[in-house]
Amino acid sequence: MRPLQALIDTEALRHNYRLACRAAPGSRALAVLKANAYGHGALECARALSDLAPAFGVAAIEEALALREGGITQPIVLLEGFFEPGELELIAAQQLVCVVHSEWQLEALAEARVSAPIAVWLKCDSGMHRLGFTPEAVPDVWRRLNALPAVGECGLMTHFATADQPACALFDRQLTAVAGLRQALGEPPVCWANSPATLSRPTAHGDWVRPGIMLYGADPLTHANDLSSALQPVMTLESRLIAVRELAAGEPVGYGSRFVTERRTRLGVVACGYGDGYDRHAVDGTPVLVDGQRAALAGRVSMDMLIVDITGLPAAGVGSRVTLWGRAPDGTVLPVNEVAACCDTISYTLLTGVTARVPRRPWLRSSS
């Protein structure tokens, strides 16, 4: 009965996926569903995209198996590959696609005896320096991979570190490196572009793009463009006011008395806190919407509650709907990126951090 809920708008998800396809019309779009679809519910999102997306991406085999058990039949790419050689037969049996990024994985594939060849993406570390083989090592690894009985179709993958920035020498170096490798390897299928590159770097699109955060409506670019500005929020974190307080000037509010009223102030208590995933680092003034109108956080976020200044909203009272991020019932949008900036974090952290005690429910557009 607690009023806090995460409303998931699958029509917005489909809109954002189509936007990725429009941004990269010559590519196929791999929909990334890792981390429980960035906190939105992986199986529900996969089902919503099942007639649009030709493939999905997850971090690990557990996530892939949950989709298979839910009836998802499209190819699923394991973006971190396998973690133990013992996974390989299950990967083969489930017809999963595996990223190969390390020598030990290559050796495990060489020793594997599997029931069917495994399609792989060879990961090149073109400059991110997280996972992958160096550009110099890729040709030899490519040759070895293609000679293995356990390996089926091979593609080339990389990950861009700075595609969100409008101009960056590192991005140019990364793209030049993998483009040269693609030519040297005989033009294999490639998957290079993450969300920001999908939206802003058409030279990096290749055969596949892999939209992630953009699917969920958060703009991944440091400078928005026409495409990213058209993204729609998929998650709305919504609660209600459960109490209203009126305080005189000079009164402290919340833990540590960080906020002190400067005038006679009307405050609303919201059923949402860091135990639900709302970031406790949110500063005073962090925006919320109360019945679609802007209000501001007052004081530190508690485990189960937070307080907002509703002095300028005389109609607001107990039961008023509070939008912590997303779209209010009247259509007003509070971008999750704006809230994240007030918490000195990013939208990825807020969305994936919404805890399990917050129910995910479908956004019913007819009632909004």
Rank of each mutant, 00 (worst) to 15 (best):
353 G>D: 00
288 V>Y: 05
335 P>A: 12
321 R>W: 06
305 M>Q: 11
329 P>V: 08
329 P>R: 10
308 V>K: 04
347 S>N: 10
327 R>P: 03
307 I>M: 13
289 L>A: 09
307 I>V: 15
358 V>M: 07
311 T>S: 08
345 T>A: 00
325 W>R: 09
356 A>C: 08
310 I>P: 03
310 I>G: 03
340 A>K: 11
301 V>I: 14
352 T>P: 00
334 L>P: 05
285 G>L: 01
344 D>E: 07
290 V>M: 00
292 G>S: 00
306 L>F: 06
299 G>R: 14
343 C>E: 13
308 V>I: 15
291 D>A: 05
314 P>L: 08
307 I>L: 09
313 L>G: 04
338 E>T: 11
349 T>Y: 02
339 V>P: 10
307 I>Y: 07
359 P>A: 07
333 V>N: 03
311 T>F: 03
329 P>T: 02
303 M>L: 10
288 V>L: 11
344 D>I: 06
298 A>I: 04
282 A>E: 09
302 S>H: 14
314 P>Q: 04
339 V>N: 05
348 Y>K: 08
320 S>H: 07
310 I>S: 05
332 T>K: 12
310 I>Y: 06
286 T>Y: 13
316 A>F: 02
359 P>Y: 09
327 R>E: 14
288 V>F: 15
324 L>Y: 01
309 D>P: 12
328 A>H: 06
298 A>D: 11
297 L>M: 15
328 A>T: 09
328 A>G: 12
345 T>G: 01
291 D>H: 11
353 G>Q: 05
347 S>I: 02
316 A>W: 07
284 D>N: 15
316 A>P: 03
330 D>N: 15
294 R>Q: 13
317 G>S: 02
330 D>V: 04
296 A>F: 15
343 C>A: 13
298 A>H: 14
284 D>I: 12
359 P>M: 05
326 G>W: 02
349 T>I: 07
290 V>D: 00
301 V>F: 06
337 N>G: 08
288 V>I: 12
327 R>N: 06
338 E>R: 15
347 S>W: 03
358 V>C: 09
313 L>C: 08
351 L>R: 02
326 G>D: 09
289 L>N: 10
